[in-house]
Design a protein around this nucleic acid. Structure first.
Lengths: 205, 205
DNA sequence: GGCGCAATCTTGTCAGTGACAAGATGCTTG
DNA sequence: CAAGCATCTTGTCACTGACAAGATTGCGCC
């Protein structure tokens, strides 16, 4: 994988350095966490000089801002297609599992610039998706305070995803599909009461 | 500027350098996150030479391992006094709010050495506290699978705490006491059904 | 009391890093 | 085809973590 990027580049310009650095960064973060990120290392992986990435991302915080923004954008697109609140939660968890590097960075605001316009826009889009699903909840299913229900749903999904990524649920969920486990969890929170104490696990849709 | 720590130390030995470096580290993490940690900066704050901390913590990972271990120990002590599962959740959230630096480090295993014996012991103690509260749950309150109920409770508390610390709940919870807000959240998850639907009289089981 | 040892701290050093400045290269557009 | 600009390179500086070797001191033990 290193060949093409490191040595085969004969042109002065890389072609798509921004994307190359971003994906390399995601690889490193997924493997060793954001603290293992080194701009110079990313430059080496892309086969360019040590100062090349700075032109696309300004500095380290800029790179991580781009990662977070891309993450919020991906999340927003995922949530936009959700059927209901439970499905949105499942998608939230699936997003975290499939894009762990994005997810990790998104929720460590000290790593990037939280006031970046592109990032805040993407984050607003993601939040809008969640808000919509909460508004669509049946009145009996969400308790007295819709805002509280939203915080509860988000907390449950976010906590499950975070614990999963920090390897704290290896015991309880074992080798099962995280999204399916979370579907069961969500059933405990928001559901009709018979769904809450189910007789048959092959639940309704 | 920091007279006592920087200049007034007349003895060759610091006295309690380990504690001094640890608290300085917690200050920095609370203010700017773990990525802003610099061993040399901590040494300066403690008024010792740049290599002094290494003798107590070996390296950066060693320092953060000590922080995480101390965090798990504090958490275990807090959870040990809990009345029930809901109270344990409230204490979990309160711990995160009162010890944000510990909490942040604890759940970023890539920052420290997760197999450190002292740390794993403290973590086991904390987990034991949670497990005990789950076992004490009334059968109707926890659904069909106790393990699932535990994951749900932990996820809810952990997600709420994490979102809180990453400044993602500034809008919804406003200036309210986080612990109280969480108490309401916990009411949505585990409760008798009439507590869950305050007006709804029919409590099927 | 004092000797020796180990813990603690200091000084010195090296490679790696982020950030910045100034120059080289080549695409693009008028 | 020439000017302009985005892209990339080379060079540099202060800072950092890690390690090695020496200085200082507290402490147990005779």
């Amino acid at each position: 994988m290193a060949e093409e990027q490191q040595t085969d580049r004969r042109t002065y310009h890389h072609g798509d350095l921004r994307r190359a650095v971003l994906t390399a960064a995601l690889d490193v973060i997924r493997a060793d966490g954001p603290s293992a990120l080194s701009l110079r290392d990313l430059a080496r992986r892309a086969g360019v000089s040590h100062a090349a990435p700075a032109h696309h991302f300004k500095d380290r915080a800029g790179l991580l801002t781009a990662v977070a923004a891309e993450g919020y954008d991906l999340l927003a697109r995922t949530l936009a297609d959700a059927d209901d609140l439970k499905d949105a939660g499942v998608r939230y968890v699936r997003f975290a599992v499939e894009h762990p590097a994005h997810f990790q960075v998104m929720f460590q605001p000290d790593l990037y610039r939280p006031d970046d316009p592109e990032l805040t826009a993407a984050r607003a889009r993601a939040a809008e998706g969640l808000r919509g699903q909460i508004a669509g909840l049946p009145a009996e299913g969400r308790g007295p305070d819709a805002r509280l229900a939203g915080v509860a749903a988000w907390s449950l999904a976010h906590g499950f995803a975070t614990l999963l990524l920090s390897h704290n649920l290896a015991g309880p969920v074992g080798g099962q599909d995280p999204a399916e486990v979370f579907r069961a969890l969500a059933g405990l929170l928001f559901s009709t009461d018979d769904e809450r104490h189910p007789r048959d696990p092959g639940g309704p849709r």
